[in-house]
Amino acid sequence: MSKILVIAEHLGGKLNSSTARAVSAAAAVKAEAIDVLVLSDAPDAIAAEAAKIDGVSRVLTVARPENAHPLAAVLAPQIAKAAAGYSHLFVPSTTFGKDVAPRVAALLGVAQVSDVMSVEAAHTFKRPIYAGNAIITVEADANHPVVATIRSASWAAAGNGADSAPIEALTIDAALPTHTRFVELKQGSSDRPDLQSASKVVSGGRGVGSKENFDIIYKFADRIGAAVGASRAAVDAGYVPSEMQVGQTGKIIAPELYMAIGISGAIQHLTGIKDAGTIVAINKDGEAPIFEIADLGLVGDLFKLIPELEQAL
């Protein structure tokens, strides 16, 4: 039987929803136990949140001052030790998980399955390659632990029940390197919904034209309670910061509603939104590739259409 260890992702003392999504993938393996590991300098509040996720058997915490920031070189040796006795190690496929999981896999001497989008059997998974233009089925060797990152956009977050799983403090005897140090995190401050978990996302592209013009996108997003994303072109042009980029090399999202405004729809962008519930495209070029995958398309000038949309709401 499978025993799965899910590595919790957290920031500022709060659990990231990617963790509950990884728990959903673990539940699909039909494991006999799903434990969540919280590494932090102060894990208590995070662990309490993790304990409420449906399907979690136990929450394990490692409290060390070295774990104040998620440095892969520091976390990986601890995770590799904690993984003993588990058949599977699941980590969210966010920048946190992508950074740390392969380091753990190499320490364990095993391959890694990146971006799991479905679980076919305990050792068989589906994952995208070539920017999502092909989906492969991969079989991991059943004689070794499986290290996998879980594609957040493919999994709904496991629910939050009234029950709380037991929380246990873990002592891990691992020598931690000092060769890597955290300096600072420059966060884009935003009161808007989080791009990766929002149910509605409004994205702007090169067609928006300038940083100032992007206000029209923000305003419209706020009006309908949506998070704001962007194409690579808009990021490269300096209209918005890079953490807003949606696509193969940015964030992969699956909101219920995705509105692409002034985005032509390069393959690399479409990869990031293919699993959205309803895709709306607004573009002045009726031949733009975005219309090939849009459920609802509207051809016209965004500066004329957005005010009209607001009016019609």
Partner: peptide
């Protein structure tokens, strides 16, 4: 080669969408 690729598939296609004529119809 702990990982064996056993099958390749094209991604699921999205069904063909519709074009609307104006903002009011979209809303």
């Amino acid at each position: 080669d702990h990982l064996k690729t056993t099958h390749y598939a094209a991604p699921a296609k999205r069904s063909k969408g519709v074009m609307v004529k104006d903002a009011a119809e979209l809303v």
